[in-house]
Design a protein around this nucleic acid. Structure first.
Lengths: 110, 110
DNA sequence: ATTATCCATCGTAATATTGCAATGAATTTG
DNA sequence: CAAATTCATTGCAATATTACGATGGATAAT
């Protein structure tokens, strides 16, 4: 126990929860905001901006990269991270469809 | 040490991650979809639809309720759960602002 | 009143996540 | 080449999450 039973859910449900997990930590939200603002894109800068250890930021960057939401480019000893525009857009559509479910029905039940 | 340092993040960042956590599990995504579809709204029905134990579903319902995304109404021995429309809309705006950040900048960096 | 149904809560076990120090690989600089 | 810089990875420790059986309270049905 303690392990999510993803077999019993649809691909769409698992996909939504996977994307949501990316945003389910304030550090990753902060990282993404910095990348969008272009206020920091190098790992070291993000470490300074956000107050977490380098190893921790690197780990969060890895998760975002694995999900495809960002991409990293090596520039000498530094690595510059950027939003992966296409994948971000694709993710957004999936999340929006889920969030906008309330538009498609005229509810009332209890 | 396993505990999120929410003090170092903005209220907005913490709020987004908190909402995202609600969707970060496929069972909660499934529950919300059932509530929107009106295909099940009583706890017992949700247990049958989704293949998890009653205690587990009850726990997920509690989390969604604590976040204010759903509300429960006692009807005899049953409890009918519904989407909390207003709070859902408010949450949606916050999440949309975050997801649509890519509209506000003309990036390119690396 | 007794029984049955429904659901929340508690306790427990297992897995996942978060955070960091330490280490090491790659590159740049001196 | 040596030293310095930057970042990814590894190995731990601590906390959080997921799941479920068991229990108990509340209401409905008999």
């Amino acid at each position: 126990m303690g392990v999510t039973k993803s077999e019993i859910f649809t691909d769409q449900q698992n996909q939504i929860s996977t994307f949501a997990k990316a945003f389910a930590h304030p550090a990753r939200v902060a990282i993404l905001e910095h990348l969008f603002n272009l206020s920091a894109c190098v790992c070291g800068d993000l470490v300074n901006e956000i107050g977490l250890a380098q190893a921790t930021i690197s780990q969060h960057l890895k998760e975002l990269k694995n999900l495809g939401l960002i991409k990293g480019e090596v520039e000498g000893t530094k690595v510059c991270y950027c939003i992966h525009q296409e994948n971000w857009t694709a993710m957004k559509e999936i999340m929006n469809e889920f969030l906008n479910q309330d538009k498609t029905v005229t509810p009332e039940c209890c």
